[in-house]
């Protein structure tokens, strides 16, 4: 339930929804609503969507620069709220990463999906939609290239860091990456088994796992 900020054009009382109550809408006060509801209101011209700060040409350009400069990793994800001590820990899509007061220097987890949806449903609310569309395409291509380039460091142990990866990118790369890792693991089973037996012989304390140098940190 990704939240976005809307500027309502009509009054709407708060609704008791299954996913929690929504705030009452009083034009022209801004309000945070779930994306699906914002899109429904937008289609019926009952509200305008306020695009998140990172979805602005200048913000996207600076993120694109970061992506260009760091050739071996993605641009950092938005800063996380302080870690919760209890059972509940918030993670995307429940982080408030796409409301009007979200941080502007980082792409959230669902950047690609959200960007496409906004360009499709609310191009008139986006600042300079053509430039944004071009920047989104550039970002997508440069990040795709990083995923493809990262394939060479995959190995059977399957320890690959992908900090800052997007939801869509995980979905696209899942079959290939897990296929390669699983395949390499099966090839290396006997070697791994031998190493494991040697470790047991030497005793657990004697073995000090060496920090692996070629872990991919995209």
């Amino acid at each position: 339930m990704e939240m976005v900020t809307v500027v309502p054009r009509q009054r709407l009382e708060g609704l008791e929804l299954l996913g929690g109550p929504t705030v009452p809408l009083h034009p022209p006060h801004r309000a945070s609503l779930p994306l699906w509801l914002a899109l429904l209101l937008k289609r019926q011209r009952r509200a305008n969507i306020l695009p998140p700060p990172w979805f602005h040409p200048t913000a996207l350009t600076s993120i694109l620069d970061i992506e260009r400069n760091k050739t071996d990793q993605f641009s950092p994800p938005p800063p996380l709220p302080p870690p919760a001590t209890g059972e509940a820990t918030t993670s995307p899509p429940f982080l408030l990463s796409s409301t009007a007061d979200a941080p502007d220097g980082a792409l959230p987890y669902h950047w690609l999906e959200l960007g496409e949806i906004l360009l499709d449903a609310a191009p008139d609310d986006v600042v300079d939609p053509d430039t944004v569309r071009r920047l989104m395409r550039d970002l997508r291509e440069i990040r795709m290239a990083k995923i493809r380039a990262g394939v060479v460091v995959l190995d059977g142990s399957g320890m690959v860091g992908l900090k800052g990866v997007g939801g869509m990118e995980v979905g696209e790369g899942r079959a290939f990456i897990s296929g390669v890792v699983d395949g390499l693991r099966k090839i290396g089973t006997s070697r791994e088994q031998a190493l494991r037996e040697r470790e047991v012989e030497e005793g657990d304390d004697a073995y000090d796992p060496v920090e692996n140098g070629d872990e991919m940190d995209l």
Partner: peptide, 13 residues
Amino acid sequence: DASVVLKRGDVWV
């Protein structure tokens, strides 16, 4: 010989 430290917010395979 793989060993990683898990930090909040990281994504791993």
